[in-house]
Simulated assay, not measured.
Amino acid sequence: MTERLDATEDALTLIGELAEKHGDLMFYQAGGCCEGTQPQCFEKGGYFPRMNDAMIGLINGYEFWIDRDLFEYWQFAHFTLDVVDGFGPGGFSLETPLGKTFKVHYRLFSETELADLSSVKRSI
């Protein structure tokens, strides 16, 4: 099964630090203007996905949701969550006070990967 989501070691390290401080987490990547499609990290339940948003996978057991319209655009791409130094556009994400921001690297799936692609969970 081809997974839709992965994370760099740097992202996994930061996620561990955030989980230690805040408990269970969740990620949401919106498709709007203000957050600039920046992935954001919240305490679990700190953000409610909209109807038909897509949960594309788990990172360390934490759900990664993306906006329904953004998913339609990026459904044929693999997401790799990374982290960089700097202040993201939203400022609401848990890593912001640490001077970090999450970032996603995209690549298109190969034909072989597309034939064995994992399904997504939709919010209701």
Results as ranks from 00 to 15, higher is better:
Y47P: 01
H78N: 05
F109W: 05
D53T: 06
F76L: 12
F42Y: 15
R68D: 15
C33D: 10
Y47C: 10
E95I: 02
F92D: 15
C33Q: 08
F109V: 10
P39I: 04
M55R: 14
A115E: 09
N52P: 03
N60H: 09
F42V: 05
P97A: 09
E35C: 12
V104N: 09
G90F: 01
F42D: 12
P39G: 09
G61V: 09
G91P: 06
I59C: 06
L98C: 02
E63S: 12
A77R: 03
T101Y: 00
E43W: 00
H78A: 11
W74Y: 10
G99Y: 00
K100L: 09
S93Q: 01
F48P: 09
C41D: 02
G46F: 04
E72C: 11
F79A: 11
N52M: 11
M55T: 00
F42G: 07
G88Y: 01
A54M: 10
D53E: 13
L114C: 13
Y62I: 00
G86S: 06
F76S: 14
E35L: 03
E72T: 10
L70M: 06
G91K: 02
E43Q: 12
T96H: 03
S110T: 15
Q75N: 14
G57V: 05
G61F: 14
C33P: 01
C41W: 00
Y73R: 02
Q75F: 07
H105T: 13
W65I: 07
F79C: 08
D116A: 12
G57R: 06
Y62E: 03
F92T: 15
K44H: 14
I56W: 04
G99H: 00
G88Q: 03
I56M: 05
G57M: 08
T112Y: 02
L94W: 00
L108W: 07
N60G: 05
L81P: 11
D116W: 00
S93E: 07
D85P: 03
G57N: 06
Q38T: 15
D69W: 08
G88I: 06
Q38V: 11
G86M: 05
L81G: 08
L108V: 05
G61L: 15
F92C: 13
E72L: 14
D69N: 11
V84H: 01
G99S: 01
K100Y: 02
Q38L: 10
L94R: 01
Q75E: 13
P89L: 11
R68W: 08
N52D: 14
N52I: 01
A77H: 07
C33F: 14
T112L: 07
Q75S: 12
K100D: 10
F109Q: 09
F102H: 06
I66L: 14
F109C: 12
C41H: 00
